[in-house]
Amino acid sequence: MTGNLVIIAAAAVLSCACVFVLIRRAAQLGLVQAPEARSSHVRPTPTGGGIGIVAGALVAGLSLPGADGVSLLILALGLVIALVGLIDDRRPLPARVRLPVQALVVAALLWSTGAAGALAGGLPAAFHLGAAALLLVGGLWWINLFNFMDGIDGIAGQQAILMLLSAMLIAFGTVPGVTGGWTWWMMAATAAATFGFLVFNWPPARIFMGDAGSTFLGFTLFASAMLSLVAGWLSLPQWLVLAALFAGDATVTLLVRLLRGENVAQAHRSHAYQRLSRRFNGARPVSSGFAVVNLLVLLPIAFILPQEVWAWLVVVVVYVCVIGAALACGAGLPDQQPASFNTYRRLLSRSRN
């Protein structure tokens, strides 16, 4: 265990060192993000800091004992996702290029882990195909929504760290011998590498994560969920609870923008968390608030989540609360439009017509 702890610490140090170098060399590398009308920052800021997360996590993953063929494939798939994100950071890629690559990566992950079979259990083959399709769409959406939610200082980093640590804590408290495997320590390494980046990204940020980091973290969280699902450590409802803040905000924002007839591929700043950051004059209260909810509300719920159908009932209640909060914050609406019941009712009426 001592050796693993040294590797975890090294992941944080390597990530921190990479981010420090990137801050100093961002201009030469073409990784400076200038503010735009739809940006949440007001001055040119280095981006691509997620490269530190990728470096720290991948080096640790290769160094940790117990890695098998599936583990190495997952690391390789994460690297592919990060490279596509890095290219997108430097020169935006169209969705027709990004999405097929991401879909192939998620499909390879599902095939290698057998997650669809674990989800469908002993049901007929048709249910296994349905589970695979559901997980493919869910994985693709999660990777992209995690990228969408990386819009203010500190929010994506804290979300990744707390989701990983929460899952680790739940597994540690319920599954004997869980610390003897590669997966549990890889989750710790990713959290440590993310912390090495978050030191520089916590409000006011000195560097942004960029697509390389956000898509890598989205993929790694999804891969961790699939591995823990197959191993029987955590259930899908537990992961859905831990992901509720990000999944709820991003999904509500997307649907509202669709109802408003907007181009959903266009950059915007109408997420609930972005509107809140403008209301509270900065990212710190919002990122801190998300961290508090993750730690003091969602983690305890996921930890004591009941089994079978009752677990899904709890998931529904959690998401109803999150969706209601997102709507109350005006998710998907422009700055000048206040959130109200009548606003959303008019949007629904217009869409029906």
Score class of each variant (00 low, 15 high):
222 F>M: 12
318 V>P: 02
168 M>T: 14
228 S>Y: 11
240 L>S: 02
71 S>G: 15
70 V>C: 13
9 A>W: 10
109 L>M: 15
232 G>P: 05
69 G>C: 13
91 R>L: 12
77 L>R: 09
178 V>M: 01
278 R>C: 03
207 I>K: 05
214 S>L: 11
185 W>Y: 03
42 V>R: 13
318 V>D: 08
339 A>F: 01
94 P>E: 12
332 G>S: 01
126 A>C: 08
52 G>I: 03
227 L>D: 06
224 S>R: 03
173 G>P: 03
295 L>H: 01
39 S>P: 04
113 T>R: 01
90 R>Y: 01
53 I>Q: 09
209 M>Y: 07
292 V>K: 00
29 L>D: 11
248 G>M: 07
70 V>H: 04
266 Q>I: 02
155 I>Y: 00
342 N>I: 14
265 A>N: 14
14 L>R: 07
72 L>D: 11
274 Q>G: 01
92 P>D: 08
74 I>K: 04
340 S>G: 11
109 L>K: 00
45 T>R: 12
24 R>F: 04
187 M>T: 06
160 A>M: 04
256 V>A: 08
69 G>M: 13
41 H>I: 11
313 L>V: 15
338 P>G: 10
175 V>A: 02
110 L>W: 12
215 T>M: 15
309 V>Q: 15
316 V>Q: 08
330 G>V: 06
11 A>G: 08
261 G>L: 06
25 R>L: 13
337 Q>P: 00
224 S>H: 04
143 I>N: 10
236 L>W: 08
180 G>N: 08
228 S>W: 15
128 H>L: 13
124 P>D: 15
238 Q>E: 15
185 W>R: 13
138 G>F: 02
218 G>L: 11
118 A>D: 12
66 G>Y: 09
274 Q>A: 04
179 T>I: 06
73 L>G: 07
3 G>K: 05
254 L>D: 04
157 G>K: 01
223 A>Y: 02
315 V>N: 03
99 L>S: 01
65 P>N: 09
47 T>D: 09
305 L>R: 05
297 V>I: 14
10 A>E: 12
183 T>N: 08
158 Q>S: 11
178 V>R: 06
309 V>C: 00
143 I>W: 01
121 G>I: 10
210 G>I: 13
318 V>N: 04
141 W>I: 11
156 A>Q: 04
292 V>H: 00
154 G>L: 05
324 G>F: 08
62 L>A: 13
304 I>N: 08
170 I>R: 03
343 T>S: 13
